[in-house]
Design a protein around this nucleic acid. Sequence first.
DNA 1: GCCTTGTTGACAGCCGGTGTCAGCTTCGGC
DNA 2: GCCGAAGCTGACACCGGCTGTCAACAAGGC
Lengths: 203, 203
Amino acid sequence: MSQGVEPEVGLRERTRRTVRAELMTIGMNLFILNGYDQTTIEDISAGCGLSKRSFFRYFPSKEDLVFGNLELVGERIAARLGERPAAEPPWLALRGALDFLVTLNLSDPQRSLQLRRMLRDTPALDARRLEKQLRWRALLAAQLARRASPAAESPPPQLRDRAIAASALSCFDAAHDEWVATDAQASLADLLDGAMAAVAPLT
Amino acid sequence: MSQGVEPEVGLRERTRRTVRAELMTIGMNLFILNGYDQTTIEDISAGCGLSKRSFFRYFPSKEDLVFGNLELVGERIAARLGERPAAEPPWLALRGALDFLVTLNLSDPQRSLQLRRMLRDTPALDARRLEKQLRWRALLAAQLARRASPAAESPPPQLRDRAIAASALSCFDAAHDEWVATDAQASLADLLDGAMAAVAPLT
DNA sequence: GCCTTGTTGACAGCCGGTGTCAGCTTCGGC
DNA sequence: GCCGAAGCTGACACCGGCTGTCAACAAGGC
């Protein structure tokens, strides 16, 4: 018995992770059901049998219940970008890296739709999502900087990389909104292709 | 005497506008001096001889002290876009419209630098700026939709317009950040040219 | 078994934001 | 001028997100 897959992790850490996950699912369910602002932290923590104070020992803020994993997502996209062939032009490489986001959304389309609709009804929360995206921007720009780029001096390379990375993310947002508008009927990958091609050719 | 330039506006409205303006300047000064989060609404309203409650009769929230005019700015940019020749390609037309933002920043560079630095230290506030920019995005996309565009069906026109508008705004952000990084030494207009040209040729 | 460390609930407090209310000022009609 | 309607104000109470503190308890290492 007791053949733990992770022998390094004790009871403490295991229960902690369980509670964390439970708080996330309970919270998201309540958010989608009653709205983000209408759901208080006491509602969520009471659903877990915890006090309001204890909630903040698992999450630094209410928003992190929703966006806690988003930094990791940014790192993944950047990692994908790093794996693209060096000869590929930046715009095309970004399109490839963004396939990670496409796959992520398609892994649970229903959830993705619900989340996006909740954000639409909670502008302040959507604003925080954009803030997280600023970090993605920086990570992607840093990856572009590592790639061999046609030596041009007229735009400082840092500016060039950030502008391209930011534009690509904007295109994804536009595509994602359109995808939500079609109730996930359209192909997110095709929409992203269309959005990016509309800005610059995907050569 | 009493030859008011605006006969329509009574004493009530005049004092109201005065107080509003005073709250904005006092607030911004305190924000830049002590930081946004460290400045309480009572600090600001007390500086104006008002109670905390009265502050909210002039501004719906603390953030609106900083971003109150931003919606108007978006409308102005969109208006500029509407004035561009119909034959001009969208990317170039947006570059022209964004000259409004360039001029705005250059009208008081010092203030612009201080504001941007404060936003850098207050991520939550910067997030709200991005939220306002979402509105700009929509306004600009709507203007693009009004323009004659090469009939293409593969990307839905709404998606196409939003992607292009969002990318242009992202380029401005990148250029603006670079401009702030150079302490306003570089030419904001040139940086914007460089950023947009790096994404797509400004033809 | 003991001691360190982590976790918890309870309490108090700060701040942004809202509802309410009574008292005052401005304004418009007369 | 007068007077009533409408606007503005401060004071108070309240909510919810968030933080500091503290005593009690459970888990883990030794």
